[in-house]
Write a protein that binds this DNA or RNA. Sequence first.
DNA 1: ACATTGACCTGAGAGC
DNA 2: TGCTCTCAGGTCAATG
Length: 262
Amino acid sequence: MPELPDVEIFKRYIESTSLHKRITGVHILSRDMVKGASVSEIKKLLDGERFETTARHGKNLFIQTGGQSWIMLHFGMTGFVKYFKNEDERPAHVRLLIDFSNGFYLAYDCQRKFGMISLTESPERFATEKKLGLDALDPALDFEQFEKILSKTNSTIKTVLMNQNFLAGLGNVYSDEILYQAGIHPARKSGELDREEKKQIFFKMGHVLRKAIEAQADPARFPSSFLTPYRSAGKPCPKCEGSIEKKKIGGRTSYFCPRCQG
DNA sequence: ACATTGACCTGAGAGC
DNA sequence: TGCTCTCAGGTCAATG
């Protein structure tokens, strides 16, 4: 589901398709998905302008026109973007549609409406208002800070990784993948992990996210040691051939290998 | 003050 | 075949 790597791929997709083209129409097809801004403000910001810059913080994607404000897209669990020309390529649940002067469209599709369309003065401002933690791939995030974050709470490590206020960008799927690569059980208490274990999680986090982006966030292209393509109870662990287990942790379905993540 | 749980939304797939 | 039920998951409000 759209987590950091997916949103990074959306960002690059928009950069390669939609920048510097004149916007000739803005259609908001689900007004209920617009939060913290009005439909008319969004139309006014975009209409007649061109997208010039993109940014990402965690799972939030920002696009700036020549103006001062940025449009913000959050993808919930079913969101994605698609650039297309012909009506038969149009996705099924378009919530925001942008017309370009070259006859192409950029669609923001979100079947389950868990996403959000908003405006912000700047990505930094947005992150501050939402109290978002550092982006999980922020170069400024070092192990010392990461260790501090983990010691701030006594929740399960899985919950901590998914908490956007601590660290922005990880969701259910990538938290599981990181803990699998680190060999740590998702229900371990964050505060009880030793320094070596925290180090494992920190470095595997960067590794997993970078590899996922390299693979276009497509599990079919992931390295063969990745758990994500095997997110199903009873499937064989890609490392030990043991059986993958499914369990609710922090209200979310977690998959892990009980043998590798003892 | 913190941690956990449920509602929100919709369609796919399971089960009868 | 066709109906109903369960589940998925990010976020935030409500509850513990």
